[in-house]
């Protein structure tokens, strides 16, 4: 019965949007629509840091505020009745992610590391909600959009990757000592040093650009769909937004997972285990890369 209601509602919505679209398309003015500007942001010159993207910063704070709000709501529900162990739905969401990341960290690092686990959790939630901003219909193909996705700006993804990789290096040095950590660049053979160094430097770049590429491509797809006539656009828009929502989850998950795996690789000794994890991480990247390649080449 509920399903019938939903399908009826969807049908009504489709018919109404079709009519509205036809009317809009025939009466509205055209011309500016056909321009898609890539990498265009509202900029400002701020002291100390120089040129900044205002829109990215605003949407970053929106995403962060949503995460914090959910977090504090969950915490308030937690502390309200400590004797009642029945979790709220919000708490269940948090617990699902926290529990998952904790077990992942425990599997890879041997214990629930008090720094790595919160970092991965924070990355997951922040990236997830930042990605989902894309789903809000707040920029209907306008250059001066209200909220641009912060993860479609390399500034954010570079920053996240920098936090991750510096934490990973610090963790590796603390686990093995500076000499022990540097020694791993020359293993298994000293001749591998350039490759190892390159790998270590590429890690943050791939982290940042994978996330950026996926979300940016999703945005371009939405802009392309927005170029279609309104009475057709709703169908691919619906599909692509559903797909984009899933991509947002996957990208957030991959970023958090790779963070944990990089921690594990930095802390682990050089054995078969290390290479397995290494291969796994590489596989993740490869499995992911067709997505990046496929989407931004519409020609």
């Amino acid at each position: 019965m509920t399903l019938k209601k939903v399908s009826n509602g969807a049908l009504v919505l489709a018919v109404v949007s079709f009519i509205v679209g036809v009317v809009w398309n025939t009466t509205g003015e055209k011309g500016e629509k056909s321009e898609i500007h890539i990498g265009e942001h509202r900029t400002a010159d701020w002291p100390l840091v120089g040129t900044v993207h205002i829109d990215t910063i605003i949407s970053t704070f929106v995403a962060g505020a949503v995460v914090l709000l959910l977090g504090f709501l969950a915490r308030r529900a937690l502390t309200r009745d400590p004797e009642d162990h029945v979790p709220t739905k919000l708490q269940l969401i948090w617990e699902a992610v926290v529990g998952q990341v904790n077990s992942q960290v425990e599997d890879n690092l041997g214990k629930v590391h008090p720094y790595a686990a919160p970092l991965a959790i924070s990355l997951f939630f922040f990236i997830l909600f930042a990605n989902w901003i894309e789903l809000l219909p707040l920029k209907v193909n306008e250059s001066d959009h209200l909220l641009s996705v912060p993860t479609a700006d390399t500034n954010l993804t570079y920053a996240l990757a920098a936090v991750t990789i510096i934490s990973v290096w610090a963790y590796g040095i603390r686990q093995k000592g500076l000499g022990g950590y540097l020694k791993h660049f020359f293993e298994p053979f000293p001749v591998m040093f350039p490759l190892n160094l390159l790998e270590e430097l590429i890690k943050p770049v791939t982290l940042a650009l994978r996330l950026f590429g996926n979300i940016f491509a999703g945005g371009i797809m939405l802009a392309l769909i927005g170029l279609m006539p309104f009475y057709i656009a709703w169908a691919p828009n619906l599909l692509w937004k559903a797909f984009g929502g899933a991509i947002a989850v996957i990208q957030a998950f991959i970023f958090a997972l790779l963070t944990v795996l990089y921690f594990a690789m930095a802390g682990a000794g050089h054995g078969d285990e290390h290479h397995d994890e290494h291969d796994e991480a590489k596989d993740e990247e490869h499995a992911d890369s067709p997505e990046v390649d496929k989407v931004p080449v519409p020609a």
Binding site: W46, T51, V52, H53, I57, T60, T154, L156, L209
Partner: peptide, 21 residues
């Protein structure tokens, strides 16, 4: 518009924002 692969000052704001979060 600048090359979107090159970070600018936003990087530091984002870094600070994420570290705060």
């Amino acid at each position: 518009t600048s090359n979107f692969l090159v970070p600018n000052g936003t990087f530091f704001i984002e870094l600070a924002a994420f570290l705060l979060l």
